[in-house]
């Protein structure tokens, strides 16, 4: 289980209804269902991931997030979660708006491009970073909209999105305590709990 997912669990109330955008093989949804007795549903586009997730007994809809969420009624879920997918969609701001329409509350996690390693890589080598966390070349990466912690919070301010809580992950334990103090410089993954 990725570290950001265990952090999200804290914000999910018992018995809540949860929609997971880009739910992958459903591991996290299955955990939420078990731990929170939640009514859960996932959206995914990868065929094998969909099969795995359905095999866990989960409700999964094959749907491309870039085509929006127009088929989901407003405020039909207590919580809409999107983990590590914001940077991979065509219009991140529109997906955020749609999440906030469908869910009463949302949790978003994304890799922080402002982390010092990315900065150092770009500054010293003058090339897009390729690392363990971002193992793609610029031309074949699914991550087409990287942003930093500061970028995200600026967007929230501009769009009137309330930040109910945030948490940062910095790789190891020491990294995480640095990340909580100076998020934009040390967070590898940012986690935001937001609402309208």
């Amino acid at each position: 289980m990725r570290q950001d997912l265990t952090h999200i669990l804290r914000w999910i109330k018992s018995g809540a209804s949860v929609l997971d955008l880009g739910c992958g093989n459903g591991e996290f949804l299955a955990l939420i269902q078990k731990e929170r007795h939640a009514r859960v549903m996932g959206i995914e586009i990868d065929p094998d991931a969909i099969t795995s997730a359905m095999g866990r007994g989960l409700n999964i809809i094959e749907q491309n997030l870039d085509h929006g969420l127009a088929n989901f009624p407003s405020q039909s879920f207590d919580m809409v979660v999107m983990a590590h997918a914001l940077q991979a969609v065509q219009y991140p701001d529109q997906v955020l708006e749609e999440m906030l329409r469908v869910g009463r509350e949302c949790v978003v996690t994304f890799p922080n491009f402002g982390q010092w390693r990315s900065r150092v890589h770009l500054a010293t080598r003058g090339r897009m970073p390729v690392s363990k966390f971002m193992p793609y070349n610029w031309y074949d990466t699914p991550n087409i909209h990287f942003c930093t912690v500061r970028d995200f919070e600026t967007l929230c301010r501009q769009r009137g999105i309330r930040i109910l809580g945030r948490d940062m992950i910095g790789g190891d334990e020491g990294g995480t305590s640095l990340a909580r103090r100076w998020p934009n410089l040390f967070a590898t993954t940012a986690i935001y709990h937001i609402s309208r």
Partner: peptide, 18 residues
């Protein structure tokens, strides 16, 4: 997808694959 969308709107449990 029309079937799926109607089920989602009715808040019924549904899975869909194309």
């Amino acid at each position: 997808r029309e079937i799926v969308d109607a089920l989602l709107a009715a808040e019924r449990p549904v899975s869909y694959a194309e």
